[in-house]
């Protein structure tokens, strides 16, 4: 809560045992996974589409997208409704499935370690920073690197 230092609010979630964080600004809301509709001829990571209070949104499996192994859905499984911006700065909403949605936390910028400092990270990695809170590692994820706008727009076109 120290206002002197620059900090941002992040929503943390779990993919398996790994903890990730996304800027809360991109998060619209968190909902439970209920019914969704499968879409033919869709990419593997696209589970289908679902209805969010009258709006149809693409439902994406973050695990597949990140190349992680599949996992059964539980009652803890949540959909993060994310607002992804495209080139024209128009926002597109998507539903990204995560294993567990944890909490909203304030992370000071100085606590974020850039992955460039750590060897072995690709330049295209979706992880833009790492927070090490006494061994509890949280990877800050850039959702734009995970979910590219072109795909999304293509998906939206498909949906619409």
């Amino acid at each position: 809560m120290n206002t002197d230092k620059k900090s941002e609010a992040y929503l943390t979630f779990l993919l398996g045992d790994e903890k990730f964080a996304v800027l809360v600004n991109y998060v619209h809301e968190v909902v439970e996974l209920n019914n969704y509709t499968r879409v033919p001829d869709a990419p593997a990571y696209m589970l289908g589409i679902f209805n969010l209070r009258g709006t149809i949104l693409p439902l994406l499996d973050t695990r597949i997208k990140l190349g992680l192994p599949q996992k059964e859905k539980t009652n803890k499984t949540r959909i993060l409704i994310l607002n992804v911006r495209d080139k024209e700065d128009a926002t597109t909403s998507i539903g990204a499935i995560v294993d567990v949605a944890r909490e909203v936390v304030e992370i000071e910028d100085e606590n974020i370690q850039k992955p460039d400092d750590i060897e072995g990270f690709k330049s295209t990695t979706p992880v833009t920073g790492i927070v090490n809170d006494h061994g509890d590692i949280t990877m800050i994820m850039d959702i734009h690197r995970v979910f590219s706008v072109d795909e999304l727009s293509h998906m939206n076109k498909t949906i619409n």
Binding site: M1, A9, L11, V24, N25, V27, H28, E29, V30, V31, E32, R78, A101, E103, V104
Partner: peptide, 26 residues
């Protein structure tokens, strides 16, 4: 829990004004 989380998200988006609420939500 879900409600509280969404409340927190909302509170975070609200910025400085949502901070008190964010605490409650948390």
């Amino acid at each position: 829990d879900l409600l509280a989380l969404n409340a927190a998200v909302e509170a975070a988006r609200a910025g400085e004004h949502g901070k008190g609420f964010a605490v409650v939500a948390a």
